[in-house]
């Protein structure tokens, strides 16, 4: 149990550091910054404590927001994502989130793609909606959401494969 918590803490810190030090300075094509800290939300075990998970996600978003001097978009998107994650799991794997040992690396590849894609897309959509926060910028929000989603998924997929091997 202590080992598990240490692993979560280590993942938490490394993802934050990677996001702040490396990824926020990429500026691909001038505006694309892939977001990988949601790897924490993706890989958090399904059978773990949900309440703690919501709180940790909130803390994750808050830390990122404080360290990158952004207004609060990361906090809100992480929080909402952590709350709706059981529904996404249910939708992607057609299983109950209470089911033990249903870890991300085990099931079929189509389920995994659907899961990761939904989480990244929803996170980015909420994130850019909060950043622009204006109904007139809807085209801009959709454009950024899709472009950033593509790069984030490529990165996250690579990291998961790396982690698995």
């Amino acid at each position: 149990m202590i080992n598990e918590n240490l692993k979560i803490f280590f993942q938490f810190m490394s993802l934050i550091l990677a996001q702040i030090i490396v990824l926020d300075n990429i500026n691909l094509f001038g505006f694309l910054n892939p977001i990988i800290y949601i790897l924490f939300i993706i890989t958090y075990r399904f059978d773990q404590n949900q309440t703690l998970f919501i709180f940790l996600s909130f803390l994750l978003g808050l830390t990122i927001d404080l360290l990158t001097q952004s207004s609060g978009a990361n906090t809100i998107s992480c929080l909402i994502l952590s709350y709706i994650r059981p529904f996404i799991i249910n939708f992607s794997f057609k299983i109950n989130s209470d089911m033990p040992k249903a870890y991300i690396t085990d099931p079929k590849i189509s389920n995994r793609i659907s899961y990761i894609f939904s989480i990244v897309l929803i996170h980015h959509l909420i994130y850019f909606s909060v950043v622009y926060f204006d109904i007139n910028s809807i085209i801009l929000i959709i454009k950024y959401t899709f472009l950033t989603t593509i790069f984030s998924i490529i990165l996250i997929w690579t990291l998961i494969s790396f982690y698995k091997s």
Partner: peptide, 14 residues
């Protein structure tokens, strides 16, 4: 409850 509470906090933060 926790979600709503934290959401309110984050909106306030925002």
């Amino acid at each position: 409850v926790l979600f709503i509470l934290l959401l309110i906090i984050s909106l306030y933060f925002l």
